[in-house]
């Protein structure tokens, strides 16, 4: 096949642009954007599982604070619920599970939205309905939500729930860190009611110091790791316990932010609009080359 200088240059140009597009796709080169308002002053909760007694008063208070029928507080002493491993759902924004370890020691762990510092749900939401607030809470705008449920898939903790039982106007629901209450200066409902103060509300950075202080003062009491300090880039809710919670209560998670990988691919695809242009340029180039060939064949 004969190839003139002009054809050669065209091909090189096309390959060059497509290579550029590919490099833009590579996740290592592009970093996920951290939320612009990730404040040093953001709040969090330190959950001390060694203190929790599994009374489930937090569940009662949480329902009450979110206008969910919560019934009689004394009914929550029923321990039968611990027989099944529960997940937060549309009716229970937080739940307490009981885990029995090999040494027959019981530990109770409260689960709810972790209010990640780099939330995967915020990244996945295609209409931008979810946002991470300055005070640390991850909240969402029900009016903007279109019910695509991408946030449910994206969440590494499988927290957002959907009102599947509602035929009309089903909504996404999850723990909102009692956003209304905290704006009024009140504590989140669960932390306010906890009889043993297993839940400590405070500035995230203060809570990290406090957790490490507890490790130091009671080295035998704790497994020396704060779950949520680094996991998936850090969470507002931090957990300490007598054993490793990763792999049992929580999934084993990387320290890289959850949206880091997905966003780098997604954003890389459209970075400065170079890759799309490059792809079209490549396709155009191929078309042009093919057209040339046909002309030669026709002659």
């Amino acid at each position: 096949m004969s190839q003139n200088r002009r054809d050669f240059l065209k091909t090189v140009a096309a390959i060059g642009t497509s290579a550029g597009a590919l490099s833009a796709l590579s996740p290592n080169k592009v970093k996920a954007k951290s939320p612009e308002n990730l404040s040093e002053e953001r709040m969090g909760v330190l959950v001390d599982a060694t203190v929790c007694i599994g009374c489930r008063k937090c569940e009662w208070a949480c329902r009450g604070a979110h206008d969910i029928e919560n019934g009689n507080i004394q009914d929550y002493a029923d321990e039968k619920v611990f027989e099944t491993n529960r997940r937060p759902d549309y009716d229970n924004l937080t739940i307490v599970n009981r885990y029995e370890s090999s040494d027959e020691k019981l530990s109770n762990v409260k689960l709810q939205c972790m209010h990640c510092d780099h939330p995967a749900c915020v990244s996945a939401c295609i209409v931008g309905a979810i946002s991470k607030k300055k005070n640390g809470s991850v909240v969402w705008d029900t009016d903007m939500c279109i019910g695509c449920r991408y946030c449910m898939v994206a969440c590494p903790f499988q927290i957002p729930a959907f009102e599947y039982h509602k035929a009309l106007d089903p909504k996404i629901v999850k723990c909102d860190f009692c956003d209304e209450r905290t704006m009024e200066g009140k504590l989140p409902a669960c932390t306010a009611i906890c009889p043993v103060e297993a839940l400590t509300y405070g500035k995230r950075e203060d809570l990290l110091i406090e957790a490490k202080r507890r490790f130091k003062n009671n080295p035998d009491r704790y497994y020396q790791h704060i779950f949520g300090e680094h996991e998936i880039g850090g969470t507002s809710w931090l957990y300490i316990a007598d054993k490793d919670l990763a792999g049992t209560v929580f999934p084993k998670l990387d320290n890289r932010t959850a949206p880091g990988v997905s966003e780098s691919i997604q954003h890389g695809l459209f970075a400065y609009f170079v890759p799309p242009v490059a792809v079209y340029a490549l396709l155009g180039g191929i078309m042009w080359l093919t057209k040339d060939k046909k002309k030669t064949e026709g002659k």
Binding site: G185, L187, P195, V196, E197
Partner: peptide, 21 residues
């Protein structure tokens, strides 16, 4: 008061209950 700045000690309600529990 549970909403407080010194987080190093549990509040009174927490301290009572922890002591017993």
């Amino acid at each position: 008061n549970r909403a407080r700045t010194d987080l190093s000690k549990p509040d009174l309600k927490g301290a009572y209950h922890r002591q017993c529990m």
